[in-house]
Nucleic acid binder design. Structure first.
Lengths: 148, 148
DNA sequence: CTAAATGCAAACATTTTGCACGTCG
DNA sequence: CGACGTGCAAAATGTTTGCATTTAG
């Protein structure tokens, strides 16, 4: 299936299937991390044949285990996914509108080195998220207050 | 109920009830963050009358809203809770044994200032977690390899 | 052809909710 | 007494699993 696209799937010992290809293509296109149900609705809206919920979870699980996608939680009680090939970065999450913005890496590496030395803890990955109010919501709030 | 303990509950407009007092006392004693079911089992084992699951969630929810406890996710698909009065800190989570260790604050404040300025994003809170292998598990792994 | 992947239904874990009853202040 | 808090049962949400069937290689 789809002999030219995502050849690396085979390289990872994974069969190329419609679900995997479409999920990977979707992940390539998104700018903010998505959860399983967003992936499902996207495939439902745009693709001819839907992909089963359990299959989506299984695909995400195997891509995660192979290290092709990253997975994290943003205080929502569910997981979000991104392509692991994205450069190291963190997130700004607006508690008002839910928007998620990336911020690029910020010398966490130094901190990791420090921890490894002081604590003898081998750091494999980290997650850093900032929760607050995004510029748009701040602006609207200011306008709302001013208008009274 | 319990006229001397946790008087601040009243100050926050919350009635002093057995559940709230016992949960707060438990949170004071723990050294690593706990989830709802750990709280429930603890109360079940040690206290005469159990506290209903839904009630535990409702108590945690109101304590969280009032800012008396903090809440976060450690890639487990559930929330963990701590007293908010604990000094600012982060966590080292061992992916092998699941142990959670605190690490004290590490100049994230500077980073926050930077973000507020550059991104116009108002930071209210942050979460920083490191995932990896704890010293104990590293040691056991080394021994296991040496023994072969 | 065979191992791997999927669909379906059912189970599971965590968290939330409606409603009647109980209790703090 | 009255608003707030709780217990119980049921539901909502996110995720996983067993098993029969399909499909990539």
């Amino acid at each position: 299936m789809n002999s030219k696209q995502n050849t690396f799937l085979n390289a990872w010992g994974l069969k190329k299937t419609r679900g995997r290809i479409e999920i990977l293509n979707y992940l390539k296109r998104i700018s903010t991390p998505v959860d399983a149900s967003e992936i499902e609705s996207y495939l439902l809206e745009t693709k001819s044949t839907p992909i089963n919920t359990a299959t989506i979870y299984r695909i995400l699980s195997i891509l995660y285990k192979k290290g092709l996608v990253t997975r994290f939680e943003l205080q929502e009680g569910k997981f979000r996914y991104e392509l692991a090939s994205k450069p190291d970065h963190h997130h700004l999450i607006c508690k008002n509108c839910g928007s998620i913005e990336d911020i690029s890496d910020c010398n966490i590496k130094a901190l990791e080195k420090d921890i490894e030395k002081k604590k003898k803890f081998v750091v494999q990955s980290h997650s850093l998220e900032f929760f607050g109010v995004c510029p748009d919501c701040s602006r609207l709030e200011r306008q709302r207050l001013a208008g009274r």
